[in-house]
Design a protein around this nucleic acid. Structure first.
Lengths: 225, 225
DNA sequence: TTTTTAATGATAGCAATACTATCTCATAGA
DNA sequence: TCTATGAGATAGTATTGCTATCATTAAAAA
């Protein structure tokens, strides 16, 4: 049996649904490759169009601008990750083990998921690490937020906060701790590879040490005192 | 007695030292105001020149491009903050109290410092919160790092890591915890104001709650077990 | 089968951005 | 008095970000 995974996306993120057409899927696939390769600043719709073999105007039919496209692919990632979390923690009773699973999913290299043909989750993970926060670090974050563009991120954060509360219902900062885990899973990885003296993992560059750090941080905090 | 504070800046950050001339100081002052007002993406040297009453070419004599200018002002901020940390923790023996002071300096509104006439530290603090990470989240971060452009950030991180080790010499992740404190002091503030459901402080928007969260996080982690 | 529509391709154009170059002029030191 | 330096003025160029128009094709509806 072949299962296909579809992440339902907020319609305000695009002008025309890229999942519905061949060109749309190419836009997603190639934009992930190009942003991974050159970074978001040097990424333009012109270059993307050339890469795909279509025209700039063609891309603009799907996305208002490159920032909306970035929000789209980050939102997709958060939606996909929430699915991974739900799937991988299903039937686990011990909330501490669930939380460890979450940390591992956030902080270690993603295995490409065949259920989504046109998206390379590993490249996407790398993009989220380096560019993810640029999706919301803007002057128009509040307007974007009113349009629910960051809902997948906030939903994932709420799920993690829920698991934290399962571990210790009296812990006072479940949401802040959840967003800290998410952000630090990525920032410590970025620092480890690019500004190693900001971490304790510069020599080995081992993702599992980021996991150990986060587990130590999280379980020290939520342990009942 | 009037004391003037000068932060010594890496010469690779600029083409001509902005501290040495009137125009240079205007560039720093007005760029802080403009980036604060419009965000870094909409900030251009053209607009800055018009704001100051000079020409675009005039700005380019001081800074290679707007990204270098962003690194300059963030580097200045980290240098200034390290001075604040050193000054404010001087003569404190108890490392835990030092660490609390550090968290407070990082996470609460900055009082404008008269010792630096042309720089508004409060606006600068707001800029660091919203734009600070864009200084290093680029494809050329490693080259920039080789030129020591992020030294002030890394130095501050090392100072904080030192205090953490004073609290508990056996703690395994002093640097990662230090960079986590720095980043989260800013991100939790940004989230609290712009994406409140990612935090537990959305209703009150009280900076002191960010301080409480960080203190809880840090001291839970480094307490000897 | 014909008609309509939807998606794409091709081309043009325009205002803003990110620079570079050159020339002049004031002025402050040597 | 000469000369280096800082700064204003102007021009120009490639790229970016975005909009508009028109033709073509393929699939869906009539």
């Amino acid at each position: 049996m072949e299962v296909q995974l579809q992440i339902k996306m907020n319609e305000k993120l695009f002008l025309r649904d890229p999942e519905q057409t061949e060109l749309g899927k190419k836009i997603i696939r190639h934009s992930i490759q190009l942003i991974y390769k050159n970074g978001f600043e040097l990424f333009t719709f012109k270059k993307l169009a050339e890469d795909i073999g279509t025209t700039e105007a063609g891309i603009y039919r799907y996305f208002e601008n490159k920032h909306r496209l970035l929000i789209y692919i980050t939102a997709w990632y958060w939606g996909w990750l929430q699915y991974q979390v739900t799937f991988n923690t299903n039937n686990i009773k011990d909330p501490a083990i669930k939380l460890k699973k979450v940390i591992q999913l956030l902080a270690t290299t993603v295995v490409d998921d065949d259920k989504t043909m046109h998206i390379n989750e590993d490249l996407l993970h790398q993009i989220i690490i380096a560019e993810g926060s640029k999706a919301y670090l803007t002057k128009h974050v509040s307007e974007d937020n009113k349009e629910q563009l960051f809902k997948p991120y906030k939903d994932l954060c709420a799920v993690i906060a829920g698991i934290i509360l399962e571990c210790n219902p009296k812990y006072k900062y479940p949401r802040s701790l959840a967003s800290t885990i998410i952000e630090m899973a990525h920032f410590q990885n970025f620092f480890m590879h690019n500004l190693p003296s900001l971490t304790d993992f510069g020599k080995t560059k081992d993702e599992l040490k980021v996991v150990s750090f986060l587990e130590d941080l999280v379980f020290s905090s939520i342990r009942k005192k």
